[in-house]
Amino acid sequence: MVTIYKATKNFPREELYGLTSQMRRSSASNPTDIVEGCGKFTSADFANFCRLL
C-alpha cells in the first residue's frame, strides 16, 4: 500500500479524486478480499476465491 501512495504522490492534482483515489482504495481492498476468502469453507474454495482476484 505504501508503494501505491508513493507512486500516486506525483500524479496531477486534478486526478486526486479520480484515478489517484481509485488506485489507493483498490490497494487497500485487496488484502481485505483475501481475508474474506480465508473464511470460505474449504481450501479449494479459498484457492478459487484468490484466482478471481
Rank of each mutant, 00 (worst) to 15 (best):
N48W: 00
Q22D: 08
N30K: 11
D33W: 00
K40Q: 10
V35M: 10
T3I: 04
S43I: 09
Y17P: 00
V35C: 05
Q22C: 05
F41W: 04
G39L: 13
T32V: 14
R51T: 12
C38N: 08
L53G: 12
I34C: 09
F49C: 12
S21F: 06
R13F: 14
F46D: 01
R51K: 15
S29G: 03
T3F: 04
K40C: 12
A7V: 13
L16H: 06
A7E: 14
V2Q: 15
Q22M: 07
I34L: 12
C50Q: 08
F11C: 13
M1F: 02
K6P: 00
T42F: 05
V2Y: 03
L16P: 00
L53P: 01
E15G: 01
R13L: 12
L52W: 04
D33N: 05
E15H: 05
S29Q: 08
F41L: 11
T20M: 12
S43G: 06
G37E: 03
T8P: 06
N48C: 03
M23C: 13
E15D: 15
T42G: 04
N10C: 05
E36V: 05
K6V: 09
R24Q: 15
T32K: 12
R25L: 08
P31A: 07
A44I: 08
N30S: 07
P12R: 01
L16Y: 02
S27C: 11
G37T: 07
Q22R: 12
F49T: 01
E14H: 15
K6S: 07
E14S: 14
R24Y: 04
V2F: 02
T42D: 02
T3C: 05
V2S: 11
M23L: 15
P31M: 04
L16W: 03
G39K: 12
T42K: 06
A28N: 02
E14C: 13
L52D: 11
R25Y: 07
A44H: 06
G39H: 13
G39V: 00
G39P: 00
T32W: 04
T8G: 10
T42Y: 03
F11A: 04
A47F: 09
